[in-house]
Simulated scan of single mutants.
Amino acid sequence: MKKVINNPGDVVEEMLEGIMRAHHGSFQKVEGVNGIVKKELKDKVAVVTGGGSGHEPLFFGVVGDGLADGVAIGNVFAAPTPNTVQEVAKTVDSGKGVLFIYGNYAGDVLNFDMAAELLEFEDVQTTTVKVTDDVVSAPLERKEDRRGIAGDIFVIKVAGAAAEKGLSLEEVTAVSQKANEHTYSIGVALSPGTIPDSGEPTFTLADDEIELGMGIHGEPGMERTKLMPADELTNQLMEKLLDESQLTSDDEVSVLINGLGSTTLMELFIVNRKVAQILDEKGIGIHDIDVNNYCTTQEMGGFSISLLELDDELKAYYDAPANAPYYKK
């Protein structure tokens, strides 16, 4: 796969240089680590997110007003170091505590937890919400083991709005965890992304194959099958989501159709058309629909569907204003 890079070992550092030149009015770089924070920080609970590079615009793209205050950035598909997380958290902390939000992957859990222990010695209070929206990645009885995918967007949105309102660390954490528990996602892979260092694909699929439920790093899904028409594919994915969420005609959702890298907006809107039809047929209210590329894996082909089950509290935080380079409300 052709990539527009220089030395593969420099991609993260050079990407960060480019991000800072493009968004110098909004961001400040954290000295000595691969971290970015808002230039204008507020006296409130701080929200910090992060993860491996290669999923852009996550995670830096949701640093902004009403969203995350800072991001810890790892190497490609690798968790940020504990020191990076620690320094970002110290930079954004106003004394009211820091909430960590990140996808539930072993490396991220280990390094964010280590950072939290180090921050405790520096009197920085932290809490954590691990995003676990991928319904295929573990059965319902082990929901806490599930992976985080594009549902990060919903959880960060709610957390950022709650923090802006002036809630305490405990309150922001609680409503963010509620958002996570109300978020259901499923993805499908059509083709792999490639790792800049090696040029190797993250997984392999035959030209006529897709994998339902595959994770964003190539983690196994629920079924490898032949490519099918968009409506048939969307029906299968939505059947799994609706079975998992147990949504009824009394419920209302926000919808996110997330592209994984190379799938075109044309295709994503075709999928969205069918998702909306299915929800309408079930009598499930649609509060909002977002079709975009947020959580990608380089040039991976495919998409995910996320549903956020709303109540009055979550709807208010979801609708609150937000402004970041790659997310606005």
Rank of each mutant, 00 (worst) to 15 (best):
residue 229 P to C: 07
residue 262 S to R: 06
residue 253 V to D: 01
residue 256 L to R: 04
residue 309 E to P: 07
residue 312 D to K: 13
residue 282 K to P: 00
residue 238 M to S: 02
residue 259 G to T: 04
residue 251 D to I: 06
residue 252 E to H: 10
residue 266 M to R: 11
residue 275 V to P: 00
residue 296 T to V: 10
residue 312 D to A: 14
residue 267 E to K: 09
residue 295 C to Q: 10
residue 279 L to P: 00
residue 313 E to F: 10
residue 246 Q to M: 12
residue 281 E to D: 13
residue 283 G to N: 08
residue 314 L to D: 01
residue 260 L to Y: 05
residue 246 Q to L: 11
residue 285 G to D: 03
residue 309 E to H: 15
residue 257 I to G: 01
residue 253 V to Q: 02
residue 252 E to Q: 14
residue 227 L to D: 09
residue 243 D to V: 12
residue 290 D to L: 14
residue 293 N to A: 09
residue 258 N to W: 03
residue 265 L to E: 10
residue 282 K to A: 02
residue 276 A to E: 15
residue 310 L to R: 00
residue 266 M to E: 10
residue 264 T to K: 10
residue 282 K to G: 01
residue 266 M to P: 03
residue 249 S to K: 13
residue 299 E to P: 04
residue 251 D to L: 06
residue 248 T to I: 09
residue 288 D to N: 12
residue 270 I to H: 08
residue 303 F to C: 00
residue 233 L to A: 09
residue 241 L to T: 02
residue 292 N to C: 11
residue 275 V to R: 01
residue 292 N to A: 11
residue 272 N to W: 04
residue 305 I to D: 00
residue 293 N to S: 13
residue 238 M to F: 02
residue 292 N to K: 12
residue 240 K to S: 12
residue 296 T to D: 05
residue 293 N to E: 11
residue 289 I to H: 03
residue 244 E to F: 09
residue 288 D to Q: 11
residue 252 E to F: 05
residue 278 I to T: 12
residue 268 L to D: 04
residue 242 L to M: 06
residue 286 I to C: 05
residue 265 L to M: 13
residue 303 F to D: 00
residue 311 D to A: 07
residue 296 T to H: 04
residue 260 L to T: 04
residue 247 L to F: 03
residue 289 I to C: 07
residue 299 E to R: 07
residue 250 D to A: 11
residue 294 Y to Q: 04
residue 252 E to I: 06
residue 259 G to C: 05
